[in-house]
């Protein structure tokens, strides 16, 4: 049982992290705050994959004569891509926020929705 808890507590905290990000994204009406929440959620997903690649007693996956046990390089490569793509989408999101502010004069989602309804 202790073994199970020690082996899984890392995943549980990461799920908690993801849910805080999801809650921020869904409940906060401010668009900048939503983007922050999305990034928190995203880092949670990336952390989950990176922890899948961890090997107990292993080292970073750089081949050297002194070591035999290495972490799994595959999730690391995929998450490297995910981080860069994530920042690209975040940049696009922020550009949309700047345009929304120009068009509506506010960053609060409910005010934007009210303006759309009154038209």
């Amino acid at each position: 049982m202790t073994d199970y808890i020690l082996g899984h507590i890392n995943y549980w905290i990461i799920v908690l992290l993801m849910m805080i990000g999801l809650y921020t994204m869904m409940s906060m009406p401010n668009l900048v705050k939503k983007m922050a929440g999305m990034s928190v959620f995203q880092t949670g997903v990336i952390l989950l994959y990176i922890s899948l690649g961890k090997v107990e007693g292993g080292t970073a996956p750089i081949i050297d004569d002194g070591y035999v046990l290495y972490a799994n390089p595959l999730p690391q490569v995929l998450m490297l891509t995910a981080i860069v793509v994530g920042v690209a989408t975040t940049a696009l999101g922020f550009a949309l926020i700047v345009r929304i502010k120009e068009a509506y004069g506010t960053l609060e989602e409910d005010e934007i929705a009210a303006m759309d309804d009154s038209e």
């Binding site: 900048v32 983007m35 922050a36 990034s39 880092t43 990336i46 990176i50 922890s51 690649g53 961890k54 090997v55 292993g58 080292t59 970073a60 996956p61 290495y70 972490a71 690391q76 998450m79 490297l80 981080i83 860069v84 920042v87 975040t90 940049a91 922020f94 926020i97 700047v98 502010k101 960053l107």
Partner: peptide, 30 residues
């Protein structure tokens, strides 16, 4: 800590650097 130094480099450069600058630029622009 999870033995992923390459990902850590990328996160420190791209996540900490560029994302924060983008967020600050958005706050300044709006």
């Amino acid at each position: 800590v999870l033995d992923a130094p390459d990902v850590a480099f990328t996160e420190a450069a791209v996540g900490t650097g560029i994302s924060t600058v983008l967020m600050l630029a958005t706050l300044a622009a709006t």
